[in-house]
């Protein structure tokens, strides 16, 4: 299987076990959801996968390569992109500049020479990547606006455009719909679905909006207290007793079903 494979991941913070012996896969061409109540360890899992937190145990494989020992930048170089719960953007730069910055960061990487002198083809490739991503995410009308003046929802779209422009094959999206209006959420679901279906990328999505999760995801992993309690299709997850118990009553899932 090609994509992301996590096996036996354990992350401890002091005495707290944030993630315990977690295994999951997010293959290319599939929209995989990662759900669970607050504090279940979803964000920590993302941090470990993207190389921001050293796991205590476990192996992370990316496109059939063991990346457990790599730092965040080389993982990104291999094609792993991510967004953050709180968008990580440069407020004083414009939308287009922010989107371009992700591309340029990847192009510069760890090569000192490339920090100074871009490849001859870079300028054009960059402009095209930015134009496509901005159009896909529907933020063409605010291209030149400073990010500092945007709503949180718009910022999430900018961040999504940045990973799209970066050309990543596997995306980790951390609660991308929080702060979005209903219309924006719908649009957002359509955008990520298109990225999976048309471009063949793999997405691992952490999300609290159950309606969105149930609608767009192909497969779901459910976490509680750092452990994987269920894995299956949205329909199977909705029907699962363990998952209902974890969410303390089934109001949330019922809503999603209805």
């Amino acid at each position: 299987m090609s994509g992301l494979e996590v096996s036996g991941l354990t992350v401890r913070f002091g005495g707290n076990v944030a993630v315990n012996n977690l295994s999951l896969e997010a293959p290319l061409g599939r929209l995989t959801g990662l759900i669970g109540p607050n504090g279940a360890g979803k964000t920590t899992t993302f941090a470990a996968i993207s190389g921001l937190v050293r796991p205590d145990e476990g192996i992370i494989r990316l496109f059939d390569r063991d990346v457990s020992g790599l730092a965040a930048p080389p993982r990104a170089q291999l094609g792993l992109g991510r967004t953050f719960q709180r968008p990580e953007l440069c407020s004083s730069l414009s939308v287009a500049e922010n989107v371009a910055l992700g591309w340029e960061a990847r192009a510069a990487g760890g090569n000192p020479w490339r920090h100074l002198v871009p490849r001859r083809t870079d300028g054009r490739a960059l402009r095209e990547a930015v134009a496509t991503a901005v159009e896909l995410c529907g933020i063409g009308d605010i291209r030149e606006r400073k990010v500092g003046s945007l709503s949180v929802g718009r910022r999430r779209l900018v961040e999504l455009a940045r990973v799209r422009a970066g050309g990543y094959r596997l995306l980790l999206l951390d609660e991308p719909s929080s702060g979005l209006e209903t219309a924006e959420t719908t649009r957002f679901g359509a955008v990520i679905r298109r990225m999976v279906d048309e471009d063949g990328v793999g997405i691992l999505l952490v999300e609290h909006d159950m309606a969105l999760v149930m609608e767009v995801c192909d497969y779901l992993f459910t976490l509680d207290f750092g452990e994987r309690i269920f894995a299956g299709t949205p329909a199977a997850t909705r029907a699962s007793g363990v998952v209902r118990a974890a969410y303390l009553g089934d109001a949330v899932l019922q809503d999603a079903a209805g």
Binding site: L52, F84, E88, L101, A105, G109
Partner: peptide, 9 residues
């Protein structure tokens, strides 16, 4: 953090 996770050392 943004640049770090976008592949920049």
């Amino acid at each position: 953090l943004a640049l770090n996770t976008n592949g920049l050392n």
